[in-house]
Design a protein around this nucleic acid. Structure first.
Length: 137
DNA sequence: GCCAACGTTGGC
DNA sequence: GCCAACGTTGGC
């Protein structure tokens, strides 16, 4: 199983919106970046992800799961863009702030930190587990 | 194929 | 509000 991070501006699509969408999940559409697309194409059903709020909040809000692998993004007016479907799995008791991530020796090398503008990024198993631990511990 | 100009994202 | 980082576009 692989792990990922999905970044969203909460005024556009928030963790709350994701929760309200319920267990049938939602399309992760609108990605218009080749590297992010490549990451989505690697996703398998059952992969886990972190849901991150960018902008004013800058923190990991919850855990999601990939429920549908990459398929064409119907919101794209041109170009070969793709999306996956994800579902909210659990909220984190204590959301993990970007500042905590940057200070943590096991997290400071996360792609999220190294490549700030990438909206869909890979996360290692260890990074995923450390973040859930921080949030629930 | 290179690079300058420009636009966007996201953190501070 | 500003700026750094990054991606895209277009001229040469």
């Amino acid at each position: 199983m692989n792990y990922w991070l999905f970044k969203s501006e909460p005024s556009t699509w928030s963790w709350d919106d994701q929760l309200k969408a319920g267990k049938k999940g939602t399309e992760w559409n609108g990605v218009r970046n080749f590297q992010a697309r490549k990451n989505m194409q690697k996703m398998k059903k059952g992969d886990k992800g972190l849901f991150y709020h960018s902008g004013d909040e800058r923190r990991v809000m919850g855990v999601v799961e990939v429920i549908k692998e990459a398929y064409p993004d119907h919101t794209a007016e041109e170009g070969d863009w793709q999306m996956v479907d994800i579902v909210a799995v659990q909220g984190l008791k204590n959301p993990v702030n970007l500042s905590e991530i940057k200070e943590h020796p096991l997290l400071e090398d996360m792609v999220l930190v190294k490549q700030g503008r990438l909206s869909v990024s890979p996360v290692t198993k260890q990074e995923f587990e450390v973040i859930v631990e921080l949030a629930e511990g």
